[in-house]
Design a protein around this nucleic acid. Structure first.
Lengths: 344, 344
DNA sequence: GTTAGCACTCGAAGAGCAAGAGTGCTAACA
DNA sequence: TGTTAGCACTCTTGCTCTTCGAGTGCTAAC
């Protein structure tokens, strides 16, 4: 048996219906819909039976309707990704209203984007800060904070700023630090983070006097790589809108994942070549999220720097709405962050 | 009718039991407990009837046990706050394990504290960054980021750092910015944030050439006051452990509050003179949290700078555990942040 | 003042039943 | 050969009824 055009149309109708209602879909429901050219429920029943045999539908129990399988959703999103899905004007407007473009700090922009996405889609949104594949240092500056602490600011290629408090024992004046900053900038400019580590050790030899400080810088570089605030989640409470999480234990499992940085990062890593990555159910690769879907997308600022925006929700997600929202938002985000970043 | 010692003891036993089980407590349950010197269930029943009349107990329906009223919890926590509640050694150990003291950035420390508190208490924790009542500027530094953006770093009295990206049109060299930084430090050092605003306008007149930059600084100061990352929530998923939130709608309402900065801040503002602020049910002042309790505590770094740590959970919260945990954590936090901050 | 005893109340849990939604199959139809 | 009407069958859902048990309040005895 093979899929044909009519089977596909019926399957899509079933998925649409199930996405809206979360209830098993019966043959009569579909036969009443006019897109399906007035077939009787009996015909639909036959087709549905075929679709079940083909693995696209599941039946919770004999006398209920049917629900789409993961395979069905796969086909559904594959179809969606083929076509163009422009964002409806009113959705775009709502997004613009929620997305605060005045934010200056990258973190704020990110947070605002997550908020906007979650507000508009009614799902939970996850956004990561843009991260360059290979960042290069452009400038280093030490700002005195107290007698024995200084703020290390590293400006990179992509305008992304790492800052870290480093502790220094010696009594260093502001001028001292300024001098060291200049030296560090000269030495480190143009290097990637990995190279910086080697170079720092080298410099340590030459500038015995500043060893203290340099060790602090090295430490900061080493532990700074995955910054803490580089991934934000918005609209967690949206999860609880959906009956699939009305069981507190299920909701807790998913919410728990969203609280664990490692797991969250794992969920968000997308196939970088592709615009969209859609993982459905078990494809998310985590038992806690085996009843979730994740739609994510990389946005790019220039060639090297990419971040991820995504949405997590039930497998019966409104993919057709989510995809254009992410698409729009990814562009808006890239544009905004590019303007804030360095001009080529 | 009056409360007497026995009534109080019985009430406390009822509360203890209800906190553990979330089930209405019957007279027999209490009479079996040995702390209550072997009174029969009938006697307890009489006392419970009195306690209900006094407003300390409610009866969900005739033939169920009784549950504590807000008034009862009030009495309960009042009693708790009188006595000493040292943190059990094993809890202290667990806290230390979860609390990552290596974090350098204030935000990281805060986040780690929230995580630790929520892990140990099994409730949701909220922590705010320390904020001085009247911060004074100590040093200003502009770090070039790109041709038309610079990072403004303001070091204050209390070692707290505000940083913001500011945009500048002119082609300013690093030396230019360094010069401006020096000038700004000279002009602004010792001023409070309010005074800085006035002063900046003044300086603008004198240093016509740097007007651009100064406007940027002013803007940054103005919108920086309530920093975005100054309040963190940990262990949201813990909420869902408790049957009072097994209804998704109720859980969503509370979780929603935790996502709204304003509301969250409102919940956390504590009576600053007191060590602990405990708000029970409606006392939280928000309809969404009318079935929650919030225990919060201010921690102080020096005389001026205070932050808040707190826990939110069901009204039948394990106050007796939460209070010493917060107490311990507040001290640990103050100590850690003081070390990172300025030495007096 | 305390307690044993007892009648009474009320919710929770389970059994039984009817209604309804949905299926699968068969036979007739175009 | 594909489509459809019809019908028996299956299961869930929602309802009522009943039972069970926990818990109370009251009374009378200790």
């Amino acid at each position: 048996m093979q899929m044909d055009e009519r089977k596909t149309r019926i399957l899509m109708a079933i998925i649409d219906d199930y996405i809206m209602t979360a209830m098993p879909v019966g043959s009569r429901t579909i036969s009443k819909r006019h897109e399906i050219g007035g077939l009787s429920s009996a015909t639909i029943r036959n087709e549905m039976s075929d679709l079940e045999e083909l693995g696209y539908l599941d039946q919770p129990h004999t006398s209920a309707g049917r629900i789409p399988s993961v395979k069905a959703y796969r086909l559904y999103v594959e179809n969606l990704l083929q076509g163009q899905n422009p964002l409806p004007a009113d959705e775009a407007r709502r997004l613009r209203v929620h997305f605060d473009r005045r934010a200056r700090q990258v973190e704020d922009v990110i947070a605002s984007a997550a908020q906007a996405i979650s507000d508009v889609t009614r799902y939970t949104a996850v956004v990561t800060t843009p991260r360059a594949q290979s960042v290069r240092v452009r400038r280093v500056q030490l700002v005195p904070v107290t007698e024995n602490a200084a703020l290390l600011v590293m400006v990179t290629d992509t305008g992304i700023i790492k800052d870290a408090l480093i502790h220094v024992d010696g009594q260093l004046t502001a001028d001292h630090l300024h001098e060291i900053s200049k030296m560090l900038t000269e030495q480190l400019a143009g290097l990637t983070m990995e190279e910086v580590r080697g170079k720092l050790a080298e410099i340590g030899e030459a500038f015995e006097a500043h060893r203290q400080v340099l060790r602090g810088v090295l430490e900061a570089v080493e532990q700074s790589s995955p910054g803490a605030k580089d991934i934000v989640v918005g609209g967690r409470s949206n999860l609880l809108h959906y009956p699939e999480y009305s069981d507190a234990e299920k909701a807790r499992a998913v919410l728990g994942v969203l609280e664990t940085r490692d797991k969250l990062l794992r969920l968000m890593q997308a196939a970088p070549k592709m615009a969209f990555t859609i993982r459905i159910g078990d494809e998310t690769g985590m038992p806690e999220t085996s009843e979730c879907s994740i739609v994510s997308m990389t946005y790019r600022i220039g060639d090297e720097t990419t971040g991820t925006i995504g949405v997590i929700g039930p497998t019966r997600m409104q993919y057709a709405r989510v995809i254009p929202v992410l698409d729009y938002m990814g562009k808006a985000l890239a544009e905004l962050l590019r303007d804030a970043g360095p001009q080529p």
